[in-house]
């Protein structure tokens, strides 16, 4: 595993992503749901909303960094609000 050049923060990052995916898979099996239509006028399931959240969060973090925002954890707070909005309204 040496060649993969692991670091603590990236390991935590992947563990968080992996556990999110596993959690949502288990949720989808245990509590099946019908897709719903939100403000985007597209049918989404929990998994879709997770995908939109993660993809959007990446862009929010990059935008925050690009606009010279610091510290970076503020971007994570914005992401949390964004995630809540996605799961509530999309």
């Amino acid at each position: 595993m040496d060649w993969m050049a692991w670091t603590g923060p990236t390991a935590i990052f992947f563990v968080v992503i992996a556990s999110l995916l596993i959690t949502f898979t288990v949720l989808a099996i245990k509590f099946p749901e019908t897709p719903r239509k939100g403000v985007l006028r597209i049918e989404t399931t929990r998994g879709d909303r997770l995908f939109i959240t993660l993809l959007g969060s990446a862009f929010i973090n990059l935008a925050w960094l690009g606009m010279g925002g610091s510290p970076q954890w503020v971007a994570l707070v914005i992401c949390a609000a964004y995630a809540a909005a996605i799961f509530r309204w999309v």
Binding site: W3, M4, A5, T7, P9, T10, F14
Partner: peptide
């Protein structure tokens, strides 16, 4: 994953 590790 390796690319993510390299990027930081």
């Amino acid at each position: 994953m390796t690319v993510v590790n390299y990027s930081v």
